[in-house]
Amino acid sequence: MIRSELIAKLAEENPHLTNKDVERVVAIILDGICDTLAEGGRVELRGFGAFSVRSRAGRAGRNPRTGETVQVKAKAVPFFKSGKELRERLNASADA
């Protein structure tokens, strides 16, 4: 599902809200998640999962075209750990 599909589904399920209102709500939620992660925080959505930030150390990489060794800088990457309810729903649909 992409952002526009999420907005369309939420607008369909909430006819009392305009598309612009739903767009604004989705933007606020996603911006809040991004801002919290950018500050090094953690975002937990009960039943869905938790987003956090993990650090990757710098390392020696290789340019695939030339084979030359290049230094890759340390970086922070987002990490998602699924919640128990999400895992159970996924596994229940796989068993069916």
Rank of each mutant, 00 (worst) to 15 (best):
M1W: 09
M1R: 11
R3W: 01
R3P: 00
R3V: 01
S4I: 06
L6T: 06
I7E: 02
L10P: 01
L10C: 03
E12T: 10
N14F: 04
N14S: 12
H16Q: 14
H16L: 05
L17A: 03
T18L: 08
N19C: 00
K20L: 11
D21K: 14
V22I: 15
V22W: 12
R24N: 12
R24E: 12
R24K: 14
V25S: 05
V26L: 05
V26D: 04
V26G: 02
V26N: 03
V26R: 07
V26H: 06
A27K: 15
A27M: 03
A27P: 00
I28M: 12
D31K: 13
D31G: 07
G32S: 12
C34M: 12
T36Y: 00
L37D: 03
A38M: 11
A38E: 09
A38Q: 14
G40L: 10
G40T: 05
G41D: 08
R42Q: 14
V43M: 06
V43F: 09
V43T: 07
E44R: 15
L45D: 01
L45V: 14
L45R: 08
R46V: 10
F51D: 05
F51Y: 11
F51S: 05
S52G: 14
V53P: 03
R54N: 11
R56M: 09
G58Y: 00
G58N: 04
G61R: 04
G61T: 10
R62T: 14
N63C: 07
N63G: 10
T66F: 05
G67S: 10
G67W: 04
E68I: 09
V70I: 15
V70C: 08
V70Q: 05
V70M: 12
Q71H: 13
Q71M: 10
Q71T: 13
A74Q: 01
A76G: 02
A76H: 12
V77Q: 04
V77T: 14
V77L: 14
P78E: 03
P78Q: 11
F79D: 12
F79G: 02
F80T: 09
F80H: 09
F80N: 07
K81D: 09
E85N: 11
E88C: 01
R89I: 02
L90Q: 02
L90K: 02
A92I: 00
A94H: 05
A94M: 13
D95T: 13
D95Y: 01
